[in-house]
Amino acid sequence: KTSLNPNDLGPLPPGWEERIHLDGRTFYIDHNSKITQWEDPRLQNPAITGP
């Protein structure tokens, strides 16, 4: 199984920011909706992941 390299996905969507949590995990901030999440928003785009 090959793992996706986030660098291959291009930039984050407008308004998003990638940060490192105190425990070392990466999380994502959506400044548009004022939410945070652990999942990379680029992986949730149907145009990238397919049907």
Score class of each variant (00 low, 15 high):
K1G: 00
K1R: 10
K1E: 04
T2Q: 13
T2K: 12
T2R: 05
T2M: 09
T2C: 09
T2D: 15
S3M: 08
S3F: 15
S3C: 05
S3H: 08
S3K: 07
L4N: 06
L4E: 10
L4R: 07
L4S: 11
N5H: 13
N5D: 04
N5C: 12
N5K: 07
N5A: 09
N5R: 06
N5F: 10
N5W: 03
N5V: 11
N5S: 10
P6S: 15
P6I: 14
P6Y: 11
P6A: 15
P6H: 07
P6D: 15
N7H: 10
N7D: 14
N7C: 13
N7Q: 10
N7Y: 05
D8E: 13
D8N: 14
D8G: 11
D8H: 08
D8I: 08
D8W: 04
D8T: 11
L9S: 07
L9M: 05
G10L: 04
G10V: 09
G10Q: 06
G10M: 03
P11C: 09
P11D: 13
P11A: 14
P11E: 12
P11G: 08
P11I: 06
P11N: 09
P11W: 02
L12I: 03
L12C: 01
L12T: 04
P13Q: 02
P13M: 01
P13H: 00
P14W: 04
P14T: 10
P14N: 05
P14R: 11
G15D: 04
G15L: 02
G15C: 04
G15H: 04
W16Y: 04
W16R: 04
W16P: 05
E17T: 02
E17R: 01
E17C: 04
E18S: 13
E18I: 01
E18L: 01
E18D: 02
E18W: 00
E18M: 04
R19Y: 08
R19G: 09
R19P: 00
R19N: 05
R19T: 05
R19K: 08
R19D: 04
R19V: 09
I20Q: 10
I20H: 10
I20Y: 09
I20D: 06
I20M: 10
I20F: 07
H21C: 14
H21E: 12
H21T: 15
L22G: 15
L22V: 15
L22C: 08
L22E: 15
L22R: 14
L22D: 14
D23C: 10
G24V: 00
G24T: 00
G24H: 00
G24D: 01
G24R: 03
R25Q: 08
R25T: 12
R25D: 06
T26V: 11
T26R: 13
T26F: 06
T26W: 02
T26L: 10
T26D: 02
T26P: 12
F27D: 07
F27N: 08
F27A: 11
F27G: 08
F27R: 09
F27T: 11
Y28E: 04
Y28K: 06
Y28G: 04
Y28P: 07
Y28S: 04
I29W: 06
I29K: 13
I29Y: 13
I29E: 11
D30G: 02
D30N: 15
D30H: 15
D30A: 03
D30K: 05
D30I: 00
H31M: 13
H31L: 12
H31R: 09
H31Q: 08
H31K: 15
H31T: 14
H31F: 03
N32A: 05
N32K: 13
N32C: 06
N32W: 05
N32T: 13
N32R: 12
S33Y: 05
S33A: 12
K34W: 03
K34F: 03
K34S: 08
K34E: 07
K34I: 00
K34C: 08
K34M: 11
I35D: 10
I35F: 09
I35S: 11
I35M: 07
T36F: 07
T36V: 07
T36K: 09
T36M: 08
T36R: 06
T36P: 02
Q37C: 08
Q37D: 03
Q37R: 02
W38D: 13
W38Q: 11
W38P: 08
W38C: 08
E39P: 04
E39R: 08
E39A: 10
E39T: 11
E39L: 06
E39Y: 04
D40H: 09
D40G: 01
D40L: 02
D40Q: 00
D40V: 01
P41M: 05
P41D: 00
P41C: 02
P41V: 01
P41Y: 00
P41E: 01
P41W: 00
P41I: 00
R42F: 00
R42V: 01
R42Q: 02
R42L: 01
L43T: 12
L43W: 06
L43K: 12
L43P: 11
L43H: 10
Q44V: 10
N45C: 11
N45A: 13
N45P: 11
N45S: 13
N45I: 11
N45G: 12
P46Q: 07
P46D: 13
A47Y: 14
I48G: 14
I48V: 15
T49F: 09
G50T: 15
G50H: 03
G50F: 15
G50N: 08
G50E: 15
P51G: 15
P51A: 15
P51E: 11
